[in-house]
Amino acid sequence: MTVTADRPAQAPAGRPRRPAGRGRRLRRLRERAPLTYAGLLLTVLLSLFPLWWMLVIATRTTDAVARFPPVLLPGGEFAANTGRLFGNAGAHFTLGLWNSFVASATVSLSVVLFCSLAGFALAKLRFPGRNGFTVAVVVTMAVPVQVGIIPLLVLMQWLGWRGELQAVIVPFLVSGFGVFMMRQYAAQGVPDELLEAARIDGCSTLRTFWSVVLPVLRPAMVVLGLLTFMQTWNEFIWAVAVLTPDNPTVQFSINQLNESAYARDFSLMFTGAAYATLPLLILFAVFGRRLVGRIMEGAVKA
């Protein structure tokens, strides 16, 4: 870690950075960076292996799954598998991708908005019942969802939403996880003086939230949005229960991929999984940048 590293403005990327010359101590600290990189790199390799292996199988035929010792290099079947994937009439893969995109985008935007509002209120506004509501939010997370599938199905039936996309959207527009996360982040990151000043300034609460609080919450909002998007994208059990194979989400569709009786076609499934993972990685590459930065910039400017 170096102080210079926290000031990208002073050290143009690409050029080797030199210590700012604040003394030997700082230089010694900076030299720890290789260790940090090594630790991160090891974690990365461990993290990547199953994904890599999945891609390898996607480029081969299904019997490669059970090969021992395991196959570790790609084969030449990816184009053929891709053709089978998009040509599979029963799986509706393209529709599944689109449905999942619609559901994930809607859910994550809604979660970020409503959970930021509620989290901020519970962390920073004073009102009767605040502690009770906070505890209630945490308790909602403890509700085991599995047996709740039946009553939720009954509810969906009553609403006429079985098989409809809103059935995998509307029940998930808020999350206790999100509220609690934003509450904790706001408690930690939003200075009371800032709010006090805004109030004295005559800002309405909503205005304060929008103009003062949101910018501070941004890193947490980005993380919450990304995690929610990914969670919705990968949701499977509820989608299978409430949707139908002709109008699936992408994970449901992948599970439908099969061409033979009583045997799973893993190369086909993993080709589907590869195409389903790609959008998430792109999304993460685009929005992940926003996770770090603003406050550091602020600190540099100050």
Partner: peptide, 20 residues
């Protein structure tokens, strides 16, 4: 100075919300 309403963050949130 700290309470001067800042320009809304460039976050894509608002634009995307409309899209959603």
């Amino acid at each position: 100075p700290t309470t001067r309403p800042r320009p809304a963050p460039r976050a894509a949130t608002a634009a995307l919300a409309g899209g959603a």
